[in-house]
Write a protein that binds this DNA or RNA. Structure first.
Length: 179
DNA sequence: AAATCAGTCAACCGCCTAGTA
DNA sequence: ATACTAGGCGGTTGACTGATT
């Protein structure tokens, strides 16, 4: 049975050579025969993946070009997470590469969106703080002024405004008429 | 210089489908 | 119709590496 005592993890140079030699001699496919005939202590899936994602000739390494990125975005819109189909349209790129690239970009986008949201809310908070600071100063002065003038109603209404600034509410603040 | 963090990429896992006995 | 096997795929993990603190 596959999986008993089968080697896992990174492939060695020797294993790569054995796999390459086998494929060159017998061609792709027949993956179930590979471990036995190539004398590899690996499962068939691992052999297939190693070949497709790393050893296969013409695999392109390095950064994705702008054209490739653009194509990935358009194809993803069209096909969703069908990485093998998308990779099929990108010569030299594997489904694994495309998938990894997409995930990385997605993470970056999320991080940048989160930062934008944070900045926006910080802006809002700062504006509110600024508004409160200036408003409260003005209102306190008005309350004091009208209290001194014995203008109870005006002083009361400015107290209400103060309260609303601090509690950010328009419900009954419970402030009683000042004396 | 050491510790921590973040990004990248190879590899594994589990599921699905098709073919076959 | 059912069970089994192989191939294929997408999601996820973990090792590695370079950057930052």
């Amino acid at each position: 049975m596959e999986g008993l005592g089968v080697r896992k993890g990174a492939w060695s140079k020797e294993e790569d050579d054995l796999l390459k030699q086998f494929i060159e001699k017998h061609g792709e496919g027949k993956w179930h025969q590979v471990p036995l005939k190539a004398d590899l202590n690996r499962c068939r899936k691992s052999c297939r993946l190693r070949w497709l994602n790393y050893l296969k000739p013409n695999i392109k390494r390095g950064d994705f070009t702008e054209d490739e990125v653009d194509l990935i975005i358009r194809l993803h819109k069209l096909l969703g997470n069908r990485w093998s189909l998308i990779a099929g349209r990108l010569p030299g790129r594997t489904a694994n590469d495309v998938k990894n690239h997409w995930k990385t970009q997605q993470r970056k986008r999320k991080a940048s969106d989160a930062k934008k949201m944070k900045d926006k809310s910080q802006e809002k908070t700062n504006a509110t703080i600024h508004y409160c600071k200036t408003s409260t100063t003005n209102l306190h002065q008005k309350v004091e002024f009208f209290t001194e003038e014995r203008c109870k109603f005006r002083a009361y209404s400015f107290k209400r405004e103060l309260y609303h600034i601090f509690t950010n509410t328009t419900t009954n603040c419970g402030i009683r008429e000042c004396n």
